[in-house]
Structure formats: C-alpha cells, structure tokens
C-alpha cells in the first residue's frame, strides 16, 4: 500500500470511531472546567434558561430508581394539616407562656407586701387592702394565663410515631413541678388570707404559700430556659 492508501485507511478508521463513539468529541469539549464562582439562581419553572442546569438525558436517573417506598414518597395532606394546627397552637402556647411570666414575677414581688408583719407579742402590721387586692389580682391573672397556656400545649395535636428527644423532654418534665405548684399556690394563698382575716397568724400548710409560689416560678422559668437551650447569643452577627 502506498502513502495515499495509508492516509485513506487512517481517515476511514477515524470516521468509524467517531460514528461508533459520538460522545468522544463532546466529552473532550466539555472537559473544560468552568472556573466560575458559585452563582445561585432563583427558583424557576423552567431549567432551559439556566446555565449548567440539568438537561433531560436518555439515561437520567429517576426517583423511582432509588428504592424509596411509595409510603415515603407519598404526600400526606392530613399530616400536613395536623402539623400546621400543632404549630399554630404551640406558637400561642409560646407567646402566652412568655406573657404569663410578667404577672408571675410581679406577683412574687407583691407577695411580701400582702403579708402581715410582726412577731408574737408585738404589734402586728396588717397589709393594706390595696396590696392584698393587687397581689390577688396578679395571682388570678397568672393562674388564668398559665392554664390557658397549658391548654394550648396539652391539646396541640400529637404526631404519631414521634419519639420525644432533646430539650422538650426537660421542658415537659418541669411541668410536673410548676403544674401542681400553680394549683396549690392560689389554694394556699386563699387559706393564708382567710387565716389573716380571722386574726390568726398564718399557720399550717398555708404558711408554705410563699415557698410553693417561689418553687413554681423557678420551675416555670427553668422550663422556658430548657426549651431554649443551648443559647448562643450572637446578636452582633450580620443577619
């Protein structure tokens, strides 16, 4: 074979290769790496206008290929509605819970002012009725807000199959302290008030009114901190 024949053979071989492996030429051209900084696109309905966006290919894998069960991939509007209702109720719970903190703390401060002062054998200084009324009013407001707050937590829809993890467990455990405390505190307060009205020194279980109230408030505050923990204060960071 002469030189001309050899050239023809090489050219023919090259053409056969290109026909057999058409991706070769494209693979080579696409090997150029776009050295660009990441550019983000806003959500778009069509991917055709997006540079480097996925384009349909014959071999593009589909979601069905991955082996997820139908149950995993199926939308559950009922569960979404349940979650929405749960979030709505828990947001109210959170808001009311923080609001409740204000009269609760104020009530702790007005407590000593609503108490008769003086030792046995000394002149007993009765609290003014204004102080007692203020203390009772704050206590009533606290109780009303507290039980409304509790209602939104207790009656928020439960999500079946969810095991409780994290801070919520401590938050709920502390309710076993401040819950009974919130029932007991006004009862003991009423008992103490009645004893004072009868001219008696506050005695018996009624004398624990202040301590129970303080314990309740502490447990309540701890429950708020627990659900917010861990707190990383980074107000200075640019949002």
């Amino acid at each position: 074979m002469n030189l001309k024949g050899a050239r023809r053979a090489v050219a023919a071989g090259g053409m056969v290769l290109v026909l057999l492996f058409p991706q070769f030429s494209r693979a080579q051209s696409s090997a150029k790496v776009p050295e660009k900084t990441p550019a983000k696109q806003t959500p778009a309905s069509s991917s055709s206008s997006v540079p480097n966006a996925p384009t349909p290919a014959a071999q593009e894998p589909s979601l069905q290929d991955l082996g997820f069960s139908q149950q995993q991939m199926q939308a559950n509007p009922k569960l979404q509605a349940r979650l929405n209702r749960r979030t709505r109720m828990l947001k109210i719970h959170q808001r009311l819970g923080l609001i409740t903190l204000a009269p609760m703390v104020a009530d702790l401060f007005t407590g000593p002012m609503a108490k008769a002062k003086g030792r046995n054998g000394q002149i007993i200084r009765e609290p003014t009725s204004a102080n007692i009324d203020m203390h009772a009013a704050l206590g009533s407001a606290t109780a009303a807000l507290y039980f409304t707050t509790a209602y939104y937590a207790m009656f928020a829809p439960r999500i079946p199959g969810v095991k409780k993890r994290g801070a919520i467990r401590m938050h709920e455990a502390l309710a076993w302290i401040h819950g009974p405390g919130m029932i007991l505190t006004p009862i003991l307060g009423a008992m103490a008030f009645k004893q004072e009205q009868d001219g008696e020194k506050v005695h018996g279980i009624a004398s624990a009114h202040g301590a129970v109230a303080a314990t309740t408030a502490l447990a309540y505050g701890a429950a708020i901190i627990a659900v917010a923990w861990p707190i990383h204060l980074k107000f200075w960071e640019k949002r």
């Binding site: 058409p22 991706q23 290919a57 979601l63 997820f68 993890r165």
Partner: peptide, 25 residues
Amino acid sequence: GVCEAGQCNFLVAAPVKSFQSGDSN
C-alpha cells in the same frame, strides 16, 4: 448517577423527616 455522552446526571433524594437536629419538637 449516570454518566453518558460526556455528561453526568446524578440524582440524590432524602425524606424531609429523616433530618434530625437532636430535638424532636
């Protein structure tokens, strides 16, 4: 993932509920 004709198309999927942050709430 499938690579063909010089292009790769990869697909990754995960259930949204599989993400866990350490707090169920």
